[in-house]
C-alpha cells in the first residue's frame, strides 16, 4: 500500500488526511458554538416593576424582600415611616443581604458585610454600596421600579 503519485508531490493520502482533519475540526467548532450559547443564555430583561404589599400593613422598623424580575430587593420601612429599597445582592460575592432590626443596619450572612440604612458599605469586605431601587407608594401599594 503506497502512494501512487511521484515522491516529491504531496500524495493523495496527505490531501485526504488534511481534508478529513480540517472538516472534522470545522464541524467540531461549528457544533460547539450553539452548545456553549445554549448553556449560557443572555440575561432575561424580566419585570421592571414589583410590589411589596399595602403600605398600611408595612410596619415601621420592619423589612421585606421581594423579587424584581429574578433579583431580590430589600424594602425597609424606617422608624419615621419612610421607605427605602435596595438590591439585596451583596456587592462582595452576591450573597443575599438582610435587614437587622436589632442593629438598625443591613447585614450579609455570608461574610459578615455590613451596610448602613442608606445602603453604604460600613464594615466587612463589601467594596461598594448596595444598588438602590426606586420605591414609592402608589394607591396605598408599595411599588418598586428598577432605578
Amino acid at each position: 500500500m503506497s502512494d501512487e503519485g511521484p515522491k516529491d508531490v504531496p500524495g493523495r493520502r496527505d490531501f485526504l488526511g488534511t481534508t478529513i482533519t480540517g472538516t472534522a475540526a470545522t464541524l467540531g467548532v461549528v457544533s460547539a458554538y450553539p452548545v456553549v450559547r445554549f448553556l449560557s443564555p443572555r440575561p432575561d430583561p424580566g419585570q421592571r416593576i414589583a410590589t411589596a404589599g399595602e403600605a398600611e400593613k408595612f410596619l415601621p422598623g420592619t423589612s421585606k424582600t421581594v423579587l424584581l424580575g429574578d433579583k431580590p430587593v430589600l424594602v425597609i420601612r424606617l422608624d419615621d415611616g419612610q421607605f427605602r429599597a435596595f438590591s439585596a445582592i451583596c456587592t462582595h460575592l452576591q450573597c443575599v443581604v438582610a435587614y437587622s432590626a436589632q442593629h438598625r443596619q443591613i447585614e450579609c450572612p455570608c461574610h459578615k458585610g455590613v451596610y448602613s440604612l442608606e445602603g453604604a458599605n460600613v464594615s466587612g469586605p463589601p467594596p461598594r454600596p448596595l444598588q438602590s431601587v426606586g420605591v414609592e407608594v402608589v394607591n396605598g401599594i408599595v411599588t418598586l421600579t428598577e432605578a
Binding site: 420592619t62 421585606k64 430589600l74 435587614y99 437587622s100 442593629h103 450579609c108 450572612p109
Partner: peptide, 18 residues
C-alpha cells in the same frame, strides 16, 4: 425562598452564618 433572605420575616435577629 428567593423572596426572603436569612432573617425571619419582619426582622428581629441578625442573619445567621452561611
Amino acid at each position: 425562598n428567593m423572596a426572603q433572605s436569612m432573617a425571619p420575616a419582619g426582622g428581629g435577629t441578625a442573619p445567621s452564618d452561611v
